[in-house]
Simulated scan of single mutants.
Amino acid sequence: MLNSNTTNFTNPSTFILQGIPGLEAAHVWISIPFCTMYIIAILGNCTILFIVSMEPSLHVPMYYFLCMLAITDLVLSMATVPKMLSNFWFNSREINFSACLTQMYFIHCFSAMESGILVALALDRYVAICDPLRHSTTLTNFVVAKIGLAVLLRGSILALPYPFLVRWWPYCRTNIIPHSYCDQIAVAKLACTDTHVSSYYGFFVVFSVIGLDVPFIIVSYIQILRTIFSLPTKDSRLKTFGTCVSHLCCILSFYLPEFFSSLTHRFDHKVPLHVLILIANVYLLVPPLLHPIIYGVRTKQIRDRLLKPFTRKGT
Rank of each mutant, 00 (worst) to 15 (best):
S111K: 12
N96M: 08
H108D: 12
D131V: 11
S136G: 08
T102C: 14
A112F: 09
V52I: 13
I71K: 13
T138K: 05
C109L: 11
R93G: 03
V119F: 05
C100S: 14
D131C: 15
P82W: 04
R93P: 00
F50Y: 08
L74S: 08
A122D: 04
Y63I: 00
Q103V: 06
I40L: 03
L118G: 04
S111M: 15
L69G: 07
L49V: 05
Y63Q: 03
P56K: 05
M104F: 04
F50T: 06
I51V: 06
W89R: 13
S86E: 06
I107D: 03
F90R: 10
A41D: 05
M78H: 13
R93W: 04
D131F: 13
R93T: 07
P61C: 03
C109Q: 12
N91V: 04
T72R: 10
I117W: 14
T138S: 10
S92D: 12
F106V: 14
M78A: 11
Y63L: 01
Y126Q: 07
Q103T: 12
C67T: 07
I42E: 07
T72P: 02
Y126P: 04
M113T: 09
I40W: 01
P61K: 00
Y64S: 10
M113Q: 15
L58W: 00
K83V: 01
P56V: 02
F90E: 08
G116C: 13
T47K: 02
T47I: 01
L66P: 08
S136C: 09
P132N: 12
L121R: 14
L123T: 08
P132A: 11
T102K: 12
I48Y: 00
S111C: 15
H135L: 12
M68L: 11
S77P: 07
F90T: 01
E55M: 06
A79F: 08
F90G: 11
L101T: 10
M68N: 11
I40D: 00
N96I: 07
R134A: 14
F88T: 02
P61M: 00
I40V: 05
L123Y: 08
S53M: 09
H59F: 03
N45D: 07
L76V: 11
G44M: 05
L133I: 10
C130I: 11
L133E: 15
L85N: 09
E94R: 06
I42R: 02
T137Q: 14
F50C: 05
R134Y: 11
D124C: 15
A79I: 07
S53R: 09
T138C: 12
S136R: 14
A79P: 01
S57W: 00
I51E: 00
S86V: 01
W89H: 13
A99K: 09
A120F: 12
L123D: 14
Y63P: 06
C100V: 02
Y105C: 13
W89F: 15
V52L: 04
I39L: 13
D131P: 15
S98E: 07
A41C: 04
S86H: 10
N91G: 11
F50V: 06
S92A: 11
L66C: 09
T72Q: 08
N45P: 05
G116V: 02
N91P: 03
Y64G: 06
F90I: 01
V81K: 10
L69F: 10
I51Y: 00
C109N: 12
C67Y: 01
V60F: 04
C67E: 11
W89I: 10
S77W: 10
N91E: 13
T137R: 14
A128N: 11
E55R: 08
